[in-house]
Amino acid sequence: MKLSNLWKEKDVTLSFEAFPPKKDSDFDSVATAVEKIAQLKPDFMSVTYGAGGGTSTYTSQIAQIVQAQGVTALAHLTCVSSDRERIHHELDALKEAGIENILALRGDYPEGYDPAAPRDFRYAYELVQEIQAYGGFCIGGACYPEGHVECLSQAEDLRHLKEKVDCGVDFLTTQMFFDNSALYSFLYRAQEVGINVPILAGIMPVTNAAQMTRILSLSGTTLPNRFRMILDRFR
């Protein structure tokens, strides 16, 4: 099922996210975990695409396992470390596997990335355009309630987001946040600039204090003092 049809039927949905294994030897344990989570019957499950495409070879495989459990799969796809031929290879593989939903992302810069070097893709909106032209997929995009860490202002970030949505994004999912007011403010500002697609709240369970500190520094997400005190006490 395309997720754009899901939200026509349901106002409230629940999803989970799976991370493909980094090593071949871990594939079976990840597949087993995905099968167990799928038994909870979420509305859909997303499958990430490794930084620099590092675990990308497993994305479609894990997504197929998700769908074999009767759960709709959403496959992540990043573009900054790929050329057009590689992207089309990935789109062909997802189409052949029966995956109808893609979360289109720029992705993290790979080690040794040269911004001046000629590339087929530099931004997520270019990947959205490529998928839209390819056809057949429901396309999701990322958004940032507190602003993208690389943007000078939230207003600038919203302008870029509107451009991306106008290129063919069917829905957005947010970066994690720990203050609901940040999300409510963002939803209001997004609506003001004409962004009317469904926006899903991205929730990050806190299970590791050191990992959370690193993720916060990379994403620019604010951790309210009341949560920081809990994290410090029970780390």
Results as ranks from 00 to 15, higher is better:
F137Y: 02
Y144N: 01
F16D: 06
F44L: 13
P198V: 03
T221L: 03
S181A: 14
H89D: 15
V169S: 09
S15G: 12
A182V: 13
A201R: 14
F44M: 07
G194E: 06
I62N: 01
K8D: 12
I102G: 02
I37T: 12
K41C: 08
S219P: 02
L127M: 02
S4E: 12
F171E: 05
H76T: 06
D166G: 10
D11S: 11
D24G: 05
R106E: 02
D157G: 02
G140F: 14
K164L: 04
G147H: 09
G136C: 05
A97C: 03
N5M: 11
M176P: 02
L187S: 00
S29V: 14
S217I: 08
S46E: 10
L103A: 03
R159G: 00
G50K: 01
Q132E: 13
R159M: 11
T59I: 01
D43Q: 08
V128L: 06
L103Y: 10
M45Y: 12
K22G: 03
F16G: 04
F27E: 06
S82E: 07
L152F: 09
K164G: 05
M176S: 04
G202M: 07
V66T: 05
A133F: 05
A75I: 12
S185G: 10
A93P: 00
V80L: 13
S153V: 03
E90I: 15
I99H: 00
D114N: 14
R228C: 03
P205Y: 00
F234D: 07
V197H: 10
S29P: 02
A124Y: 09
A210Y: 11
S181Y: 09
A63W: 02
T55L: 10
N208C: 14
Q64T: 13
T13H: 01
D92A: 15
L200T: 11
A182W: 00
T207M: 10
K10V: 03
E85M: 10
F44R: 04
Q132G: 15
G140N: 09
K95R: 12
R226T: 13
K41Q: 13
L158D: 05
R233S: 14
I203R: 03
A97M: 05
F234C: 12
D166F: 08
Q69R: 11
M1D: 08
G52V: 09
